[in-house]
């Protein structure tokens, strides 16, 4: 059954990908990209990667689609001068594909428990997480502490994307010369549609609550700062679609957004600095409490919060940068 479902999902993925490349309408292409991500998320779930599935659904299918639509509103929606087929590109691409297929025949088969990846490093994580960190979700443990330095880097990547977009597009009230008051007031996106407006208004509190749940439940189930930040930002984006761009900018002001962007990363880095000052290595949470396991749990809780704050700040700021540019 799983096999059949897997093959069905994978085949759909290929079909959708070809659709994205072939369509001349960019709006269609963006919507198909959202579907692509959702299929990908389902596929990850089939492959037992719940955390990744949640992230792909929230970030890839959700936020990414919204941002692409926001960007698309500012540029032409149709592809010009479409060529039939690009021979050289096809040649290069086929060569690379052949390389990959060549490699597959000696790869370990899917699900083989004796594959090298399941023999080294990973078993240690599965064994030691309950002892050293004491939380059930091993993905969160690896993300938060064993490879916490990568995660700090990831937060900085998000932060950089945020400052990059704000640098390029400006944000009324903070970056560039426009003020928040110059942004058009009112609800031009969903304003004329009664049903989405009422349903949306009802949904927003639950979305925000769910974000908090995902944030703080990440140690026990799938979830964590990235997913929570994306969901929280999605809730606020829905608010700005219903209430209007200027109104949303007045609820969480641009200065606050920039503060959130920076403070999450600083909170994360701060944990590292504190553990240094307490005599450990950078990001060594063992130092944070008398009991190392408690220290680890505190550390993960705080850095996940930092991740959530920066991701929320960046995604919202980036959305507003696109949305306010056109209004």
């Amino acid at each position: 059954m799983t096999v059949l479902f897997g093959i069905f999902l994978l085949t759909l993925l290929v079909v959708v990908a070809i659709g994205i490349v072939r369509t001349g309408n960019l709006f269609t292409a963006v919507m198909l990209t959202g579907i692509f991500s959702l299929l990908m998320a389902a596929n990850f779930f089939v492959l037992d990667a719940a955390d990744v599935a949640l992230t792909e659904a929230a970030v890839g299918a959700g936020i990414s689609t919204v941002l692409l639509l926001g960007g698309l509103a500012l540029v032409p929606g149709r592809e010009r001068n479409r060529r039939r087929l690009h021979g050289l590109a096809l040649g290069i691409v086929s060569l690379i594909t052949l390389m990959v297929v060549y490699a597959t025949f000696e790869k370990p088969r899917l699900g083989d428990p004796s594959a090298p990846v399941h023999q080294h490093v990973a078993p240690w994580y599965l064994e030691q997480t309950p002892i050293l960190v004491g939380i059930p979700n091993v993905v969160t443990a690896v993300l938060g502490t064993f490879r916490g330095y990568d995660t700090l880097g990831e937060v900085i990547v998000v932060f950089t994307a945020g400052i990059g977009v704000l640098f390029l597009l400006g944000l009324p009230g903070a970056i560039g010369s426009r003020k928040t008051e110059e942004v058009q007031p009112g609800n031009s996106y969903l304003g004329h549609h009664l049903i989405p407006q009422i349903v949306g208004t009802l949904l927003i509190p639950f979305i925000l609550l769910f974000a908090l749940y995902v944030q703080f439940h990440g140690e026990y189930g799938p979830g964590g700062g990235f997913q929570a930040g994306a969901i929280f930002a999605a809730g606020m984006i829905l608010y700005s679609l219903i209430a209007g761009e200027r109104e949303a900018l007045q609820v969480i002001t641009p200065r606050v957004l920039i503060g959130l962007m920076a403070s999450g990363a600083l909170l994360f880095g701060g944990v590292g600095i504190v553990s240094m000052l307490l005599g450990g290595n950078f990001l060594d949470y063992n130092m944070l409490a008398d009991n190392p396991v408690a220290g680890q749990q505190w550390g993960i809780l705080i850095i996940e919060l930092g991740v959530g704050i920066t991701v929320t700040g960046v995604l919202l700021a980036v959305y507003h940068a696109f949305a306010a540019r056109g209004r």
Partner: peptide, 10 residues
């Protein structure tokens, strides 16, 4: 990094 020895940590 983080006090975890390689190859488990970075």
């Amino acid at each position: 990094m983080g006090g975890w020895p390689a190859p488990y940590g970075i």
